[in-house]
């Protein structure tokens, strides 16, 4: 399966492939954001690979790390092939200002809430999402909590304390 997938990616989407990572047996492909939708649709159509299960969508904020040069945000798509029992990852790197990537809700209805969560906690926009609104945090909360520049201890909305303190970043 591993070889098959590598061949598939190189043959059909060779120019969309930026890098290939293998860390502790977890295979991941870094691809161009604009090609994400095409690649995922190709997975759904391909009978031999049979990658039909979108396990998870999440993001990583690389603020202040060497890897920030490649793009501050990394959105990770966790894909799984049920008949082959094989898991791999697609990653797209997005810039710090206005990070936007195509939504996969048209391919997988289950992507709806996962993308809303990433939008809520990281502020990454998913183009074409039917209802991109907050899901976990209160409506009054400004900012995106899982970004590294979001303060850890500042309470917002202010329920009971730090009413007058300025927000500060504590890591």
């Amino acid at each position: 399966m591993e070889e098959q997938l590598r061949g598939f990616m190189k043959e059909r989407f060779g120019d969309a492939l930026i890098a290939e990572e293998d860390f502790r047996g977890d295979e991941s492909y870094v691809i161009k954001p604009e090609m994400l939708f095409e690649i995922c649709r190709a997975f759904l159509d391909d009978e031999t690979l049979n990658v039909r299960f979108l396990s998870d969508i999440t993001a990583i904020d690389w603020l202040g790390h060497d890897r920030e040069r490649n793009g501050r945000f990394e959105v990770v798509y966790n894909l799984y092939s049920l008949p082959h029992s094989y898991r791999f990852f697609l990653k797209v790197r997005l810039p710090a200002d206005n990070p936007t990537v195509a939504s996969l809700v048209d391919l997988w209805p289950g992507a709806n809430w996962m993308e809303r969560e990433v939008f809520d906690l990281f502020g990454i926009n998913f183009e074409g999402h039917p209802e991109l609104t907050k899901i976990l945090t209160p409506d009054e909360l400004e900012g995106h909590p899982l970004r590294k520049d979001f303060p850890l201890t500042y309470e917002q909305p202010q329920f009971n304390w730090n009413k007058d303190d300025p927000p500060e970043v504590i890591r």
């Binding site: 990572e21 860390f23 502790r24 991941s28 396990s55 998870d56 990583i60 990770v76 898991r87 990852f89």
Partner: peptide
């Protein structure tokens, strides 16, 4: 680096990335 480990929890696939 990034690792992912999924286990079969009582509720379903519980994964830690």
């Amino acid at each position: 680096g990034t690792v992912y480990q999924g286990i079969e929890s009582p509720k379903g696939e519980l994964g830690f990335m």
